Simulated scan of single mutants.
Amino acid sequence: MAKPLVTCLWFDGQAEEAAKYYCTVFKDSKITQVTPMVVTFELNGNKFMGLNGGPQFKFDEAISLMVNCDSQEEIDYYWDTFLNDGGAESVCGWLKDKFGLSWQIVPSNIGELMATPERAKRVMDVVMKMKKLDMKKMEEA
């Protein structure tokens, strides 16, 4: 039987702080283990391990976590929470949190909005002008 995948996130001594923070952002979350080297936690049923790995590696945009949102209010909540707590916005629904981890805050229906090449082009034309995504404008494209 295949075991579920666990995402390992490398921190410079901030693994427990990060896990506690993420558990406040995502309501269905919990820390499952804390040791000096690793913290294991779950966010909305997804398993993570925070590793206190040291300063050798930093997060970059080559990896991001995507949050699928069912409403504009949800998009606003995640976007504003990450930014107000020390994050930095980027473009097209991407931002970095205060730990430098990249997130994509997107509508749950993004696949439907991009289902055909013609519509995907119209949606992307709108998205390329945004930082925080506007569901209504994307759906109208």
Rank of each mutant, 00 (worst) to 15 (best):
M1Y: 13
K3V: 15
L5T: 14
V6L: 06
T7N: 04
C8S: 14
L9H: 01
W10P: 00
W10S: 03
D12P: 06
A15Q: 02
A15Y: 00
E17N: 13
A18N: 01
A18G: 08
A19T: 08
K20D: 05
K20P: 07
Y22I: 12
Y22F: 15
C23M: 01
C23L: 09
V25P: 10
F26R: 03
K27C: 10
K27N: 13
K27E: 11
D28A: 12
D28Q: 15
D28E: 15
S29Y: 08
K30V: 10
I31W: 00
I31E: 04
Q33K: 13
T35M: 09
V39N: 08
V39I: 12
V39L: 02
E42I: 14
L43P: 04
G45F: 10
N46V: 12
G50K: 00
G53R: 04
P55R: 02
Q56T: 08
K58I: 14
K58A: 15
F59Q: 05
F59K: 09
E61Y: 10
E61M: 14
A62K: 13
I63Q: 12
I63E: 00
V67M: 10
V67G: 00
N68M: 09
S71E: 04
Q72D: 13
E73L: 13
E74D: 06
E74A: 10
I75P: 01
D76A: 09
D76K: 12
D76S: 14
Y77C: 04
Y77P: 00
W79C: 06
W79E: 00
T81G: 07
F82N: 03
L83Y: 01
L83F: 05
G87P: 02
S90G: 06
V91L: 11
V91H: 00
C92Q: 07
C92P: 07
C92V: 12
C92K: 05
C92N: 09
C92S: 09
G93T: 05
G93H: 04
L95I: 10
F99E: 04
F99N: 06
L101W: 03
W103L: 06
Q104P: 06
Q104I: 00
Q104A: 06
V106D: 01
S108C: 10
S108H: 12
S108E: 05
N109C: 15
N109K: 09
P117F: 08
P117M: 03
P117R: 04
E118I: 15
E118F: 13
A120P: 03
A120F: 04
V126N: 03
V127P: 08
K129L: 07
K129E: 05
K129S: 13
K131W: 00
K131Y: 03
L133Q: 05
L133F: 09
K136A: 15
K136G: 11
M138F: 14
M138L: 15
E139S: 14
E139I: 09
E139C: 07
E140F: 13
